[in-house]
Amino acid sequence: MEKDITLQVNGKQHSLRVDPSTPLLYVLRNELELNGPKYGCGHEVCGACMVLLDGVAVPSCRVPVESMEGRKITTLEGLIRPDGTLHPVQRAFVQEQAAQCGYCLNGMVIAAVALLDSNKNPDDAAIRAGMERNLCRCGTQTRIMKAIQRAAKES
């Protein structure tokens, strides 16, 4: 059942031999050893597993890896600049201390990056709408909204 698949993740080509029906999330975490995308619900409703797919924030917990060939995938790790510095959104999360347990943070950063790419200056309603798919249980949403506003100003 395994198949050779080529994935483009964080600017690199990866040749893998995998069960093509495997959801992208498990391949990213286990084959590519990336910690960013997290398993949260497996139903595409919490956002913990989000990645950027051709620049759009999408959950990775259900989509079969074989459908990802030829697509450009960016994970949390791929947002870090080549010189090791953080993406403005990542930096803003640190500055605003926008986390408690931080388990949802991957999806929050990914969704915020996609939001700011499509809207340089989102107002409160646009931020809420852009982040609606992402759940946080610690109640840090207000800090995350501040971090997004800060990133919008600073980038």
Partner: peptide
């Protein structure tokens, strides 16, 4: 005092 683990989380380091 800022928590140092938050930057590690944003970098996708092994935390959990």
């Amino acid at each position: 005092i800022p928590r140092t683990d938050i930057e590690r989380m944003t970098r996708g380091e092994s935390v959990y």
